[in-house]
Design a protein around this nucleic acid. Structure first.
Lengths: 349, 349
DNA sequence: CTGTTAGCGCCTTCAG
DNA sequence: CTGAAGGCGCTAACAG
C-alpha cells in the first residue's frame, strides 16, 4: 500500500494508527502525515467484509409522504448517527410483500439491523421477521406471542383521551374519520373509538363513521365530504393529522365554524397540526419518542445480541389547540397550547 | 461453501447461476434449489469489495423538516431504487463543514455517488467537491466556473412570475419575507425580487422586506409579526411555503383577509400549500423534477464516467391558488387551481 | 512495539 | 460448460 511505503512502515501499522491502536510516536506521526498527503482514507467496504459489520442501519416505513414518518425518520437518523451508524432508508409501500423482499435482501448483509414500521402485518411477514438472522425492531403492534423487540403507541388510550376531552364539552355526535381498517393503526384506532364511546355511554351511529381510502390528505377530503353528506356531527376525531387537516378544509368550505359548530381532533401531533387556522388539537402518540426508543433498542441489541426481548408501549398525551377549545375562534391566543397526560387515569368516570 | 456442496457443484458455478450467467439446466436447477433450501443469498459486502461498487447512493440535504426536501428525497429514492441502488440519507445541517466531513467519509467508499443540496456554498466546500473521486451531482446554484453536474431552479424567474401575477392585480406594496440572505436560495430569491420589482417599476421600501432567521414556520411567524409591525403591505411573497404558511397564520390572526386585503404567494409549491384555508399560491420551482433529474444525472455518470458535464436549469411555473385570487375567499371553488408557465415570456410588458 | 500472514465471501480470469 | 485459484483492501492473530 502506498501509505505504508511512503511512511516506511508496514501495512499493518498503518491500520493500527488509523484505528487508534497503540503505536510509537514516530510511527504514528509518519503514518498520519503520509495519509494526509495522499488523502488516504481506509475503505469502508473492505473493513466491513473483514469485521462483519457495515455500520449501517436500515429503516423501512410505509408512507414517506406522511409527516409522522418524516419525523420518525429524522429522529432515527439522529440517534443512529450518534452511535456511528449510517441510515439507509427503504421506502416500501404498504404492501407486506415489499417488506418481505426487503427482509431477504437484508440478509445479504448490507445493513447490520432494521427498524420496520409496517402498516399491515401478515403471517408471512411475521415468519420472515422471525427467520431473519439480523436484529429487527418493529415500530407498531405485533400479534401476541411474537417476541421481537418492539415499540408501539397505545392508540386506544389515545382515542380515549380525545373522546373524553370532547365529551367533557358536551359533544354528543362525535364522528370518526378513520383510514383503511385493514391496517394495524386503522384497526387499533377503530377499536379505541368504539371502546371509548361505549365507556362514556355516547351513542354511536354508522353514519358517524367513515373510512378514508388511505391516510392521506386527498383521501381525507373525500371521506369528509361523505361524512358531512350523511350526518351532522358536533365533533370529529380523525385517525391522523392529514385526515384532520382535510376535514378542517372541508368544514371551513362548507361554512362550519371550528370549534364552535364542530370540534376537531387529529392524531400523531405532527407539525402540520399547528400550521393551520385554527390549529388542530391532536393526540400525541409519541412518534418521536417511539422512533428514538426503537433506534436505541436496535443499537442495544447490536451491542448485546442476547439481551432479553423488550416491548415498549408509549403513553399518549393530548395536545389541545384551537380546533377544540370553545370560544377559541373568537379570541385565538398567540401560543395557546396545553397538554393533558393519560397517565393519571383516575378522573375517568 | 454449503450451497456448492449441497448442489454437488463448484463454488464458481453457484456464483454463475446466481448472477444469471450461462450454465447447464441441471446445474442451474440444483443450485437454485439448494440456495432456496438454505435460504442463501450472496453477501453484499463481499460482492461490493470484489466488484468495486456498493450499489448505494448518498443523499445529503440540509433540513429534513422542510417538505420540499422530503419531496426531493422521495423522488430520488424512487429513481435510484429503480436503477438498483439503495439510498443512504445523510442529514447534514446547514453547516458546510458537516458536508465536508461527509465528503471525506464518502471517499471511504460506502456509496458509489452523492447527491448534494447545500444551503451555503463556501470555497472550501467547492474544493472538496472537486477533489472527490466519486461522482457528485449538486442540486442548487454553483459559482461560475465549477464544472460539476448540477440541477438548479431559476428562482429569479420564479420571483418574476410571482411579482408579475401580483402586479397585474394592481398590488403596489408587495412585501418580501426571505430566509437568511447568506444562503444560496436566500441570496437568489432576494436578487430575483429586487430585479422583478425594478423591472415593473414598483417602488421598494426597506420596511417591506424582512429576513426570517431560517426557512422554518417558527421563524416565519416572528418575521411576519415584524413585517406587519412596520408596514402595511397589500401583498406578500415568501421565500418558501413554510414561511408563507406562517404569514397566513399571522395575517389571519391579525384580522387581515387573504387575499382581499393581502395577497400571499409562497415558493416551492409543496403539499402544505394546498392544505391551508385559503390554499396558497406558490411558485413551483420544480423540486420533484430537480430531484429526478439529479438522480438520473448521477446514474448516467456512474454508467459513463466520461460523459460531458451537464448543468440543467429547471423553469419555474406559478401555481395559482386561493390566496392570491381576488374574490376567492367569498366563493372558494373545490378544485381551483391554474398554472402559469414561465417559458412563454412574451407578454411581459 | 512492529512486521508477516491468513483469510473475510465473492467474482473472474484461466485451464480443462 | 465447469472447476481451480487468485485477489479486492482490510484487520486480527501470531511471531519477532
Amino acid at each position: 500500500m502506498l501509505v505504508a511505503e511512503r511512511a516506511g512502515v508496514s501495512i499493518a501499522s498503518v491500520s493500527r494508527v488509523l484505528n487508534g491502536l497503540p503505536a510509537s510516536t514516530s510511527v504514528t506521526e509518519r503514518v498520519q502525515q503520509a495519509a494526509a498527503e495522499l488523502g488516504y482514507v481506509p475503505d469502508a467496504t473492505a473493513r466491513s467484509l473483514k469485521v462483519g459489520k457495515t455500520e449501517q442501519i436500515a429503516l423501512a416505513v410505509a408512507d414517506v409522504g406522511n409527516p409522522v414518518y418524516v419525523a420518525m425518520m429524522h429522529e432515527v437518523s439522529r440517534v443512529v448517527a450518534d452511535a456511528g451508524y449510517r441510515l439507509v432508508v427503504s421506502s416500501t409501500g404498504s404492501d407486506p410483500d415489499d417488506q418481505i423482499t426487503l427482509l431477504t435482501s437484508l440478509n445479504r448483509g448490507f445493513a447490520d439491523g432494521l427498524i420496520l414500521s409496517p402498516l399491515r402485518v401478515t403471517e408471512a411477514l411475521i415468519d420472515h421477521l422471525r427467520a431473519s438472522r439480523l436484529p429487527i425492531v418493529v415500530i407498531g403492534s405485533l400479534p401476541a406471542g411474537v417476541d421481537l423487540d418492539s415499540v408501539r403507541a397505545d392508540s386506544a388510550a389515545g382515542m380515549g383521551l380525545a373522546i373524553k376531552h370532547l365529551a367533557k364539552q358536551g359533544r354528543q355526535r362525535i364522528a370518526f374519520i378513520n383510514g383503511p381498517v385493514d391496517t394495524v393503526p386503522g384497526a387499533a384506532r377503530l377499536s379505541g373509538y368504539t371502546l371509548a364511546m361505549a365507556k362514556r355511554g355516547i351513542a354511536m351511529h354508522g353514519d358517524l363513521q367513515v373510512n378514508a381510502d388511505d391516510f392521506t390528505f386527498k383521501a381525507g377530503l373525500v371521506a369528509t365530504e361523505a361524512l358531512l353528506d350523511q350526518a351532522t356531527p358536533d365533533a370529529i376525531v380523525c385517525a391522523n393529522d392529514l385526515l384532520a387537516v382535510a376535514a378542517l378544509k372541508v368544514l371551513t368550505r362548507r361554512g362550519f365554524s371550528v370549534p364552535n359548530d364542530v370540534a376537531l381532533v387529529g392524531m400523531d401531533d405532527t407539525d402540520i397540526a399547528e400550521l393551520t387556522t385554527p390549529s388542530i388539537t391532536s393526540v400525541n402518540l409519541g412518534s418521536v419518542k417511539r422512533a428514538r426508543t426503537a433506534a436505541k433498542l436496535l443499537i442495544r441489541r447490536l451491542n448485546e445480541p442476547d439481551a432479553p426481548v423488550k416491548q415498549v408501549v408509549i403513553e399518549p398525551k393530548l395536545t389541545i389547540r384551537e380546533s377544540s377549545m370553545i370560544g377559541a375562534a373568537a379570541t385565538p391566543a398567540t401560543d395557546s397550547r396545553s397538554v393533558v397526560s393519560h397517565s393519571s387515569g383516575g378522573d375517568d368516570a
